[in-house]
Design a protein around this nucleic acid. Structure first.
Length: 212
DNA sequence: TGCCAGGCCGGGT
DNA sequence: ACCCGGCATGGC
């Protein structure tokens, strides 16, 4: 079922790199900033950080909270996300020293460690693992749920871990495929499946069965 | 102009 | 094991 879905989507979205970000650190920062927020504001925040020379583990870690909050204000929840960002950076520095040092850690252990950081939930952890470190951890987000629910593949409120397990059990254990699959969900939603989307009827997967 | 966006946490039931 | 309110800003 999920393999067929992948191949159906593949016809519309050929393989291409997707998560915007030039480094694992930038990706990690982006995963925090994009929590419950559209990517638009995140771009602006990342831009601010770059211009301020702050896209660096030590520089970010040493930036005062008030200043960091000001830089990331466009992506919303600035105070909250400043704390979460600092929590993540502190974890990386104290546990691994550098972002790259995390690459050699076993995926399952690293995921547990990331989840223990306050402000890093399952989607954030999996996004860091998959898009930052190219480890095969399937990302489940609002888009994933929307597509699956709309097309009657999985019930809307299926728990995160269950959805992830279903994918990881079914499709090849390959980071590039996981990333591409998730990217296609996002692209599909942006093109056809956002709430009250006018082109909903033109969805390549066919008419939705449920309004989500 | 109100509604919504690529979550997560803490507290309550 | 769920359910809910809070957290902020900008685009459409």
């Amino acid at each position: 079922m999920l393999n067929k879905l992948y191949h159906d989507l593949l016809a519309f979205y050929p393989m291409k790199p997707w998560w915007p970000g030039d480094s694992a650190l930038e990706t990690a920062v982006g995963t925090i900033l994009t929590q419950n927020t559209s990517w638009k504001g995140v771009l602006k925040s990342i831009e601010n950080l770059k211009n301020a020379g702050k896209l660096d583990l030590d520089a970010l870690h040493e930036t005062p909270d008030e200043q960091l909050a000001e830089l990331i204000r466009p992506s919303g929840y600035a105070n909250l996300k400043t704390r979460r960002l600092k929590n993540l950076l502190r974890f990386i520095k104290t546990r691994y020293g550098t972002v790259d040092a995390m690459r050699t850690a076993p995926k399952d252990r690293l995921r547990e460690e990331l989840l223990s950081v306050n402000g890093v939930g399952r989607e954030t952890a999996d996004s860091i693992l998959l898009y930052g470190l190219e480890k095969p951890s399937f990302v489940v987000d609002a888009y994933t749920r929307r597509v699956l629910a709309r097309h009657g593949i999985l019930p809307e409120k299926t728990p995160y871990d269950e959805i992830q397990a279903t994918f990881e059990r079914t499709i090849p254990r390959d980071a590039a495929i996981y990333a591409h699959y998730h990217a296609m969900f996002v692209e599909l939603c942006k093109a056809f499946c956002l709430k009250n989307h006018p082109k909903c009827e033109e969805c390549p997967l066919g008419k939705q069965r449920k309004k989500i």
